[in-house]
């Protein structure tokens, strides 16, 4: 399907010129991870971004190298900015068949300016794939039976998405149908932000679901190691990664997505055999950490709600 209603840019995208000066200044110092292996990037999460939606939230991962942002545009370290709106629960249209449960539909869209490569308006395969992953993650947490004949739409806009390689490395490596490693972090963020927005909308959930990522990463000297919340541009090579949607109080996983095989990553060095489960465990820990932020954000929004409802209620104000 081609989009003929809008004037679209060239299909392959155009690369703005990279001038020599910026190249020489930057190529010498590729981004390096300054965090500890088990340290996450700082998360900013706030609900109530969109007043007209039933629930909404904004999620932001600060750039991994905060100093780089000031230099120039081209050298800006990738950050992640997501907005999520939840519409509903609203009655299904008359034409829709009867559904005894809440119908969940998820959409993830990259803003055209989200990455260096501009995106079209029509969701591509990668975005639909992410949305499908998100749907599985959320479906396990919603109590759908309480909302028969209704549906909710979870719409996520990626305002800024990570790229696999930093800008100065130039070439994008593996970015197949499912996208690169950056997609893993984006999905994790999407799960957390969608969870916040759903709670903001007041839809019944069995627990708070949060997303976490861990990856097996090649290191220049040491054997491969597991890093929480990897930023693809920080690492030389990522062997395998795992995204998880995790419910802490129930110790349940609603979504699990791994990429590449850990066995393949350790082929050359048999001494350091890695297993799958520890990687998942690390991802779970990332999810547990993200949950703390989610709880803070919910508490904050609940307090504001309590306060406004108190002011707004005339009977209550009088007493």
């Amino acid at each position: 399907m081609t989009d003929r209603r809008r004037i679209n840019g060239p299909l392959g995208g155009t690369a703005p010129p990279v001038f020599v000066s910026s190249l020489t200044s930057k190529t010498t110092s590729p981004a390096k991870r300054t965090r500890a292996p088990d340290e996450l990037r700082k998360i900013f999460l706030k609900t109530g971004l969109t007043p007209s939606a039933s629930g909404s939230a904004y999620f932001e991962l600060e750039p991994s190298t905060p100093t780089a942002a000031s230099e120039c545009l081209a050298s800006k370290a990738p950050a992640l900015k997501l907005t999520c709106t939840v519409h509903g629960p609203r009655p299904l249209p008359r034409s829709a068949p009867f559904s005894p449960q809440l119908l969940l539909s998820t959409r993830i869209k990259f803003a055209p300016f989200a990455a260096r490569q501009r995106r079209g308006y029509i969701p591509n395969v990668g975005e639909r794939d992410l949305a499908a992953h998100l749907e599985t993650a959320l479906r396990g947490v919603l109590i759908g039976e309480r909302w028969p004949k209704s549906g909710i739409d979870v719409v996520i806009t990626v305002l800024e998405g990570e790229e696999d390689n930093s800008w100065n490395k130039g070439q994008s490596g593996e970015s197949g149908r499912t996208g690169g490693w950056g997609m893993m972090s984006i999905l994790s963020g999407c799960i957390t932000v969608a969870s916040a927005a759903i709670i903001d909308a007041g839809i019944d959930c069995i627990d708070l679901v949060t997303g976490g990522v861990a990856a097996v990463v090649r290191q220049p000297t040491a054997p491969p190691q597991v890093f929480l919340d990897p930023c693809p541009s920080d690492h030389e090579e990522i062997f395998a990664a795992c995204v998880i949607g995790y419910l802490q109080t129930r110790d349940e996983i609603t979504e699990l997505w791994t990429k590449r095989s850990i066995m393949a990553s350790t082929d050359d060095n048999r001494a350091n055999t890695m297993e799958f489960e520890p990687l998942v465990d690390q991802a779970v820990e990332a999810a547990v950490a993200a949950r703390l932020v989610l709880i803070e954000a919910i508490k904050e929004s609940t307090e504001v709600k309590v306060q406004t409802s108190q002011f707004g209620h005339p009977k209550n104000a009088a007493s």
Binding site: A36, L40, K42, I43, E60, L292
Partner: peptide, 18 residues
Amino acid sequence: DVDKQPEITPAADPSVFA
């Protein structure tokens, strides 16, 4: 410290954009 759980909430202040 690897085994140490991230006990401090990894919450960030909002960026300029936020």
